[in-house]
Each structure stands twice: as C-alpha cells, then as structure tokens.
Design a protein around this nucleic acid. Structure first.
Lengths: 339, 339
DNA sequence: TTGAAAGCGCTAACAC
DNA sequence: GTGTTAGCGCTTTCAA
C-alpha cells in the first residue's frame, strides 16, 4: 500500500494537535503564535516522515482546486501543442495545474470533457471551442465558472477571449499578394461557421474588393474539416481547372501543410507558377524547398494572456470579461514572390 | 458565486437522507433496496437541480483519484504530442483523467511535477523520463505509486515500460544503408546516457561491425540537447570536413528535422550526394523535396499499452511490472538510395 | 501558545 | 426501505 502520511501522523509523532501542524506547514506559525521549538519539531517530523500534503483535501475544504481545465481541438496538432505548452508553463508559475482534453472539434466531446473537469472542481477553463459549443459556454456562464476562449470566440457569447485580429491578418496577407502583382488570389478555408473562419474570409474578401477584384467561386476552396479526401478533391480542382490561380492564401496551419504537399505532388512550382501564403508557423516549412511566407501568431503571448486573465477572473469576487485581440505578423519570404 | 449542488441539497429537496441519494446516483439502488418511487424522485431532483458530483470528495473518501499524471519532455514536440493524444484517449476510455506536465528534459522540473501530481493524489504516472531521473523513480517505487515509463527506461530501475526495440531499429536501418552500398555511414545522436540513446548507438555500431566497418569519430556526431548551435557546428563539421560521408542516420525526430534543414542549407543533395535515414514520423518529411526514409514507431500502441498496464497496476493489490518492447518499422523511401 | 471540534461532499457500515 | 453516523485530510474558529 501507499505510505500516506497525514497531518495527524505528524501531530502524533510530535505530540501536538493537527491544528498546529497545519499552521506551521503552511508557514502561518507567526499568525498563530506557535512557539519556535514546536515549529521546528513539526518541520523536522514532516521532513522525516516525508509528508506530502493532500491537495484534494485542501481543495475540498477551501473550495479552490488550483487546477485549470484546458480544452483544445487536438493536442497532437503542433499549433495546439505549442499553445498547451505556454499555458502549462504560465499556469505553473501561477501555482495552477493543468488538466487537458482534446475535443477533436466535436462539441459533444467537448461537453463530456467539460463535465469531467467540472466534477473535478477545476477553478476555470481555457477553451479553443469547437463549432456548436455556444450552449455549453452559456452554461458555464450560468454556473459562474470562469473561462477564457482562445483562437476562436463567439460574437453572441459574453466571454473573455484572447485571439488575433484575424480579419487584419488575412486582409494584409491578401493585400501583400495583390501588391506583389498577383491577379487571381485564391482562398482556402474550412467550411465551418466559426468566427475566426468568417473573419479570415472577410479579411481576404475585403482586400480583394479594395483592389477592385471580384471574389468568385473560382477563387474559393471551402473544405470539410478532418477530411483529407475532400481537401484533395476540391483543392486539386481549384488548381487544375484552368482557373488561372497565381496565388493561394491558406487560412489555417493544417490547410497550409496539406496545400503545400498537394502543390508539390501536382508538380506546381512555388513561386514560379503559383505564389503561396500560409497560416501559422510550422517546422515543416523549414524543410520546404521554397521558404514559405506565413502569418505568425504570437502563441506564447496568447497562452500567457489567457492564463493571466483566467487567474484574475478566478480571483475576482464579481464576474468580468476581458477581450484581447493581438496582432499577428506577416513573415514574407520567397513563396509569395511574383515571377 | 458558483452554484454548487451537493447530495445534501438533493436529499433535502426530496426529503430523504443523503445515503439514499448516494446509492441511487451511483446506480446501486438495488443493492441498497431503495424503492423505485424514491429512486425516481431522487433522479428527477438531481436532474432538476443540475447536480454534478464532487469528484474531489469522492476521491478523498475512496483514496482513488481516477487521475493519471503524464510527464513528457515537451508537449509541443509533435512526437510527444501524439503520444499525449493517444494516452489521453485511452485514459478517457478507462475512466481516467490525464494531468500533463513538460519536464523539458530536466529532472528537477520532472521532480517538481511529480510532487505536484502526488499531492493531487494521482493514481499513477506515465513518464518519459529525463536523464538523471533514477532517484525519483526509485522514490516512486518506495511509495508504491505505480508508473509506466515510455520511450525510455533505465536498466537499473525496476519498472514497467513500453518502448521500441531501439537496438534493432538502428541496427536494421544501418544495415539497410550498408546493403544499398553506402560506405561511410554516419550516426547523429544526443550525447546523453539515456538507455534509448545507448541502444540506438549500439544498434548502429553492431551493424557496422557486422559489415566489417570500423566506427571512427569521423563518423559520429554527438550533440548537446536543446542546443541548435552545437548541432550546427558539429554536424556541419561532420559533413564538410572531407570525411566522405555518403549516408547519415539520425537517431531522433528533432535531430532528423535539424539535419535535413542543415543539409538543405548546405546545398547537399539527397540522396545524390548523401543518403539519409531519419527517426520518427513527421509531417515535415512530407514537404521535403525528397521522400524521406524513417523509423516508424507505433505511437498509438505505445500510448495504449502504457495506459493499459498502468491501469492494471493501479488495480492490483500486489506490485508487479510489465515490460513491453514493440517493433518499429522501417519506411524506406528515396532518401536512402544509392546514386 | 495550544487543543478540540466542526465541516467541506461523499460513502458505507450499521441500526432501525 | 430508509436514516444515522463516522471518517477520508485538511483548515479555522473558538475556547482554554
């Protein structure tokens, strides 16, 4: 069996009450006026017996678990992996432990995770919400469980969130491509109704409009999530049906990787035959034959801000929300040149 | 404030004792001979009040937290991200929640994480141990806390583990390169003393020996972990100092990516000037100009087996260990051809 | 300066 | 069939 030493064991060993032990081991001996000798004995016994406090009991008593629930689409996706890493690091600094779950972009999974985490009394959530999660988030609000959304948010849900200015990101990337002289700039995105998808589309579309270009279906490729077959079909179509595409803007990291791969397979030369602008950083880009241009999100800052806001919300007596919109950066490299 | 409904609230609402509520909501009404009407009323009240059990209180009472602590080197590394994903999925199936932490290959961090997790009463650990973790693992053994090592293990530590046959993996990869006619096969690894590093080196070295080749320092590149500068210095040296290297075997995924990148920067053509064999799958390989050969680890199986073994260990009254050595697979593609 | 005791939410042995 | 109660490990009020 597992050798569990409790406050009581220490109290017995030293010959004092558990109250004193509790005070001393929480460094509150002064406030409780514990005599130095007793304190010393208690500390020694604790060390001797190798005492480790039971956080569960503390939490039960205090009503605070010092745990944060993190719900991502997929922890194996490097974009979310990086986010998870910064969130974990920042949480550790703040004294919180992170419990993670992958929703797989499915709101049913996300709901199940949320309930599991609530049962574990997490103090708050950081969530990259799946499509259709609105009701669950409203529910969290009803329960007064603080949460911060990352990467995506919902216009109709009152909440804190940390996102980038997606409109501006794609707007500027598109404008850059047009400025470089590309004529038919295509846009590749998922066909969901998530706000960041919409914002990114609008950014693209606005930049086109400003340049006097019409966005026709010949320039658009909206594909199903998690469905490489659908992607290949539609993207190949886009690129090979005589649409005269001379530049492509991919609106997520997974689409970027899939897209580069497909262009390579099709033998379409970048940037000679088509210019390419990607979304998010990826170590894959480093191995691509042509240095890739991309929208760089400040992942570290997103994670840190999310944790900071959440911790503030947890500590606040009355509810508040904080919205943070960060700027992304365009990293311009060879792949978007006009040849 | 957070609207927390407890068993007591339901008991009061229905007008019964908490004991009955507990029995019913744990579906043990039959064994406790609760009358159907009472049971029904209790369930209705629970639903009505939107009751969510407090897992912390349950755990405190039962001594089981139904939580697993996962300690990885770095959750943002896709290799570990995938592992984390399969572990999370399998744990969920078994009714366990996963708490993750990144050690950054630093045993001090790993120790801190372990203690945090122990305080949270996790039922067991899955660990990709950092160099120097031996003492901590012995400590876990003393405490009778079950754990399963993944990716790496220590010969001198009695423990369960799930790893691949690293010796065989590099042995076979090296043999393949030699069989294809390469003469000077170099080996790139980290300069640590982790068993998997040693095994991988031995596999390489054995294959060389079997082919009547001598492993000289001119063929070896041992680099510091997490130190791209050191890598570049030594690897460039290896490739440019007239060592006549015509094939390189990289012994981890990070080294593989760094290596491919450097070879590209140096303008060394693969496989025309040098053949390359990598370790672990990576989406980056898909974007490389030449299809990359690699050792493919069965990530999903590693994660699943680790969870299965851990759960068995947690359930067992007496301690036992289970060692699983899985086979990896060689994926042979253009990059290792002899030109 | 220290101890006793209540109580966080839950389970389970036991009594009625 | 149902209720009472002790106790998991901890904190904190109150009394001594």
């Amino acid at each position: 069996m597992r050798n569990k030493i409790s406050l009581k064991d220490i109290a017995k060993a030293v010959g004092v009450s558990t109250a004193l032990v509790s005070y001393v081991l929480n460094n509150r001996e002064r406030e409780a006026r514990v005599s130095p000798e007793t304190a010393k004995k208690i500390r020694e016994a604790a060390k001797e017996l190798n005492y480790q406090p039971n956080q569960l009991a503390k939490s039960l008593k205090s009503g605070k678990s010092l745990a944060i629930g993190l719900i991502l689409a997929d922890i194996s996706n490097p974009f979310f992996g990086h986010l998870a890493r910064t969130i974990e690091d920042e949480s550790k600094k703040k004294g919180y432990t992170v419990i993670v779950g992958s929703s797989d972009e499915n709101y049913k999974n996300s709901e199940r995770l949320m309930n599991t985490f609530i049962e574990r009394q997490i103090d708050g959530f950081i969530i990259a919400p799946a499509e259709g999660s609105e009701a669950q988030l409203k529910y969290l609000n009803e329960l007064n469980i603080p949460f911060v959304l990352i990467d995506r948010y919902f216009k109709e849900i009152e909440s804190s969130y940390v996102v980038i200015d997606n409109f501006r990101a794609t707007h500027d990337a598109t404008a850059k491509l047009l400025e470089l002289g590309h004529q038919n700039v295509a846009f590749v995105c998922y066909n969901n109704q998530l706000q960041h998808t919409i914002d990114r589309y609008n950014g693209y579309s606005k930049a086109m409009e400003e340049a006097g270009k019409k966005v026709t279906s010949k320039l658009l490729c909206k594909v199903k999530f998690n469905n490489p077959g659908d992607f290949h079909l539609k993207f190949r179509n886009l690129m090979t049906k005589g649409n005269k595409i001379d530049a492509v803007l991919f609106s997520t990291n997974t689409l970027s990787t899939l897209g580069l791969k497909t262009l390579m397979d099709l033998g379409i030369k970048i940037p000679d035959e088509v210019a390419v602008f990607c979304f998010d950083e990826s170590e894959s880009y480093d191995l691509f034959y042509c240095p890739v241009s991309y929208v760089s999100q400040p992942l570290k800052e997103i994670g840190q801000r999310a944790v900071q806001i959440l911790v503030e919300m947890i500590g606040a007596k009355s509810g508040f929300h904080r919205q943070v919109i960060l700027n992304s950066e365009l990293v311009i490299r060879e792949s978007c040149e006009k040849r």
